[in-house]
């Protein structure tokens, strides 16, 4: 690990990654890349920078590009600055039938942004088209910062969004 990696990944992030590393054999460090990226993203207000990804690569002994591949592949990683609260409204089949389009429209109008955009104050970010989040029984549903909200109505959405700081 280089000195720069140490300064870029916080001590907390590194200890979290270490916890994951313990689960894998010594020569399979890269198995921890998803967990490591999640921690790194967490440390940085919800998005990854090239420096963070390079630090993860160095920490896990991977090539930088291999980490970029993973980070850009999974939709749970952001590689551009985004708002603090990440809103994912499921628009897959069950939720769609239950009116997820209205929910999306409502949120877009309320926040004055489109999916894929963040509010100017950096508070909210609506993720692009989100697929089934496996809560079909509670559709329409959304996830904000890893928390599930089900059986949504526009009123309920207002309440949830207003309660966030």
């Amino acid at each position: 690990m280089t000195e720069t990696t140490k300064t870029i990944l916080s001590e907390h992030t590194r200890s979290e990654i270490d916890m994951w590393l313990e689960k894998y054999p010594e020569d399979r460090k890269q198995s921890a890349v998803l967990a490591a990226l999640r921690e790194a993203q967490h440390q940085n207000d919800g998005y990854l920078t090239t420096e963070l990804m390079d630090a993860v690569a160095d920490y896990l002994g991977m090539s930088n590009i291999a980490v970029y591949e993973v980070a850009s592949f999974y939709s749970m990683f952001e590689t551009q600055p985004v708002g603090r609260h990440s809103i994912s409204v499921c628009t897959n089949i069950s939720c769609l039938l239950m009116g997820s389009d209205d929910i999306v429209n409502h949120i877009e109008k309320k926040l004055g942004i489109k999916t894929g955009e963040s509010t100017a104050d950096g508070k909210f970010y609506i993720k692009c088209e989100e697929e089934c989040l496996a809560a079909c029984c509670g559709g329409p549903m959304m996830m904000i910062d890893h928390k599930y909200y089900e059986n949504l109505t526009t009123d309920k959405v207002d309440e949830i969004l207003d309660s966030l700081d």
Partner: peptide, 19 residues
């Protein structure tokens, strides 16, 4: 020396150096 890679996925997959 892994320099080229496939970033993104599906139709948005791109070959390149990312940075």
């Amino acid at each position: 020396l892994r320099e080229m890679g496939a970033t993104g996925r599906g139709e948005n997959m791109e070959i390149g150096t990312y940075i």
